[in-house]
Design a protein around this nucleic acid. Structure first.
Lengths: 219, 219
DNA sequence: TTCTGTGAAAATATTCACAGCT
DNA sequence: AGCTGTGAATATTTTCACAGAA
């Protein structure tokens, strides 16, 4: 099995498998086919994805759910606790503070920053909002390794730079703008407009499930 | 050029190209290489993506920004107006109502639903919150074609079913659960936890930019 | 027998490299 | 001279199909 250069899509699927497994009891057994059906892929795909990392299954049986969950958690490094910083205490930031997926022991938002003097010092989700100029000083103190950007587009690059200065190793960017980070920092953009635009494309090109040929707008 | 079966990744990139173009004036010219550098891909990739849909460039020159923007907008069906329904008037829903990417003339949230009797009848973002049992009746009246689910996980599948009954052609699901929809309805899951888990994986496997081989947790 | 793990084959996606247009 | 559009070559990802383990 390959040791690195695992495609991101495989990691995404591991995450999906993990969620699907949560519906089963630890000591139950699930086959690659069973798991594949739940998440909408093929049995071969499931086996290939898992086989990158080891031999977790029992031939003739399948995968023991509890063990598989532990293995995937370990692969995704979810058997540790990540400390996160949230920058941008607006509506989206507030929503994320309450989002179930962000309220897990593996991912804890431990500091919140904003640049609005009216917000600084106030509490949000149990955290006192800090000024953005404190980022690079406070991140090491809080042991933050992941930063979440929920600022307006204009501020995003500056905030990213500060987060990098503060020593984060990963950034989740919700601001609707592409930002750049140095090598060695992992950046994930979550672009909500893009998702809508993709829907827009597929809806208008798949009307009634038919294959519709593309029509040029001009010439 | 192919007429259908365009990979989703190409559509994603078109969306990214479109955003990158917004920084330039309509009558400026940009080369595939210039665009590629901004969005972090290759010139060949840009040309290939665009060539699926037509010949938009000028050999020896590049692409005229205004024209290219119009063409991509047309491909993505952004030269029309989509009417959306939002189900789940919680924090995330409220945040989305205010999200810049969702406040464009192309995408208008025209109705909001919730199942909380305390919320129904109240206003949010200028819309009166309707009860979820009204979904299938009201969607056709409002001309809604896209539904956004921001409910808790438990409610998501039921809501999706209602949206489908109401005639939506696309669903953007923010609930942290996989849902299923019939053929002909396009589903996009936005899984915020997954993004964090991917970061978790890459950070812990790329420490100091080194290739670190994976260590099995057992055996 | 059933289902895993995995090479080999097939399908997709990306990159190369260049003819031809401006 | 410079840059597009595009077949051909590569590279990557998925699927097939089967030997071997339980």
């Amino acid at each position: 099995m390959p040791r690195f250069k695992i495609p991101e899509i495989t990691i995404e699927r591991l995450s999906i498998y993990l969620r699907a497994l949560s519906k089963f009891s630890d000591d139950s057994i699930i086959s690659s086919q069973g798991l594949a059906e739940i998440v909408g892929t093929t049995d071969a795909q499931v086996r290939k994805d898992l086989a990158y990392f080891g031999e977790f299954g029992i031939p003739g049986q399948g995968y023991q759910v509890g063990k598989l969950r532990d293995e995937i958690s370990h692969i995704l490094a979810l058997d540790r606790s990540w400390r996160l910083a949230l920058v941008g205490a607006g509506k989206l930031g507030t929503a994320l503070l309450a989002y179930p997926g962000f309220k897990r022991k593996e991912f804890q938002i431990v500091v919140v920053f904003d640049n609005d003097p009216n917000k600084i010092g106030k509490e949000i989700g149990g955290k006192v909002i800090q000024g953005v100029e404190e980022i690079r000083k406070l991140l090491p103190q809080y042991g933050v390794k992941i930063g979440i950007i929920t600022t307006p587009a204009e501020a995003a690059q500056d905030v990213a730079d500060e987060l990098v200065e503060g020593g984060v190793e990963g950034i989740l960017n919700f601001a609707p703008v592409r930002i750049t980070v140095p090598e060695g920092v992992k950046l994930k953009n979550v672009d909500l407009s893009m998702e809508l635009e993709i829907l827009s494309y597929f809806i208008s090109h798949q009307i009634k499930g038919r294959k519709v040929k593309y029509e040029k707008s001009s010439h």
